[in-house]
Design a protein around this nucleic acid. Sequence first.
DNA 1: ACAAAAGTGTTCACACTACACCCATGG
DNA 2: CCATGGGTGTAGTGTGAACACTTTTGT
Lengths: 235, 235
Amino acid sequence: MLKFDMLTNFYSHSAKFLIAVDCIIFGFKDKELHILLTRRPLEPNKGEWSLMGGFMDEEEGLQNAAEKVLYRYTRQDGIYMEQVGAYGEMGRDPGDRVVSVTYYALVKLEDFDTSLAKEFDAQWVNVRELPNLIFDHNKMVDDALQLLRYKASSQPIIFEFFEEKFTLPALQDLWEAIYQMPADKRNFRKKVSSMDILDKLEEKDKLSSKRGAFYYVFNKEKYKSFLRAGNRFSL
Amino acid sequence: MLKFDMLTNFYSHSAKFLIAVDCIIFGFKDKELHILLTRRPLEPNKGEWSLMGGFMDEEEGLQNAAEKVLYRYTRQDGIYMEQVGAYGEMGRDPGDRVVSVTYYALVKLEDFDTSLAKEFDAQWVNVRELPNLIFDHNKMVDDALQLLRYKASSQPIIFEFFEEKFTLPALQDLWEAIYQMPADKRNFRKKVSSMDILDKLEEKDKLSSKRGAFYYVFNKEKYKSFLRAGNRFSL
DNA sequence: ACAAAAGTGTTCACACTACACCCATGG
DNA sequence: CCATGGGTGTAGTGTGAACACTTTTGT
């Protein structure tokens, strides 16, 4: 009996914990950064605002668990995702001892399936007007935002917010929403175009202005050359 | 029975996991950055190189667990520590399903109790000459180093490597060990002194040179004024 | 014709880089 | 007296910030 335990499990003496995966899902809408929140469907704290989450299963890793949560609530695949951290202080969840590992994700909000919102009682909430969230979820969002800002300044992840093409005015609006700072139009465009990592399309977006703004696309190959030449992305 | 479960534990259906806390303990010695490693005392992979770690108990949080590990292996208190991340892919630990949460720590290696080394079969290993470590511990060290570099460039944590006082040549050696880059002596000293966050002592360190180098101390009050004036630490 | 957003260059200040010589001391 | 590491200043270059007007087009 003991021998069997030793073969299947070397650490059988130690305590075990529930592991939750909570996702800070960012999207860009109405010139503002939003995150997807839900009304918690279960006790304790049922009905209060909460991040999207779930428990990790035996037969999956942390990444898989996070991807599962993301797919469940967005039906999008290949979502950009990054771990924020682990939250495991005593009593952070009054329901039980739970260690939560958080990921932030960037989703393309242009073609979001609105029927999902009803199904899960989910809403896109402006990050500038966040309500009180359960447990330590507000702290998680703060940490995620800080990490997002750092990553977006040093890696080309800002393009993950768009389905494919985007205009420079929209890109700048997004930048300003992420950093909660106004940016100078000319300096912003200069910085972007100086990296030479975008392709300008013929097509214009005529929806948000009369003149229309040209669409651009992030060009992964150009970005690679850019890196090979010893440069580093910076926004 | 069911009712009782619901009161004490709302999530009783979900899987539970062992949670390990592994620490990347950094120290500065012989002009090089070192980390504290040990020969793993238990199966599986007994005898191989490993980070310092332990399992989290029921009645402690992640932070407490990490502090416990640090105190156990260094006997130092108030160690600077920061979470690196959670590692929880399937099969990362062949012994059992374990999710590991890692912290890096900066310890004062000047007055390190060498008897501890024997007690725990621990050694300070140069980060430039790391052996293969068990499981995903090499990846953990890489991630910790990256985070350390980022933090040390934007916050005054580099001083945590010293007991109290330090010389500018030693500080520069440490900086070079962290970033694995040579630094210009005059530019380095200019940057440090331009922040005006150090106190120069009368005393000199006469051990590492004939002329002797003045000791300096990090002045927390000066640093606060520095921040209040709208500046940001940068090295 | 006018309102509303797109697009475009130049100047200035500051920060970062490169660089070489004298000083103090112990042996 | 000399070898070893400690300590100091300046000039040039590149990067980030400030700043205003013209263009296009739908109504």
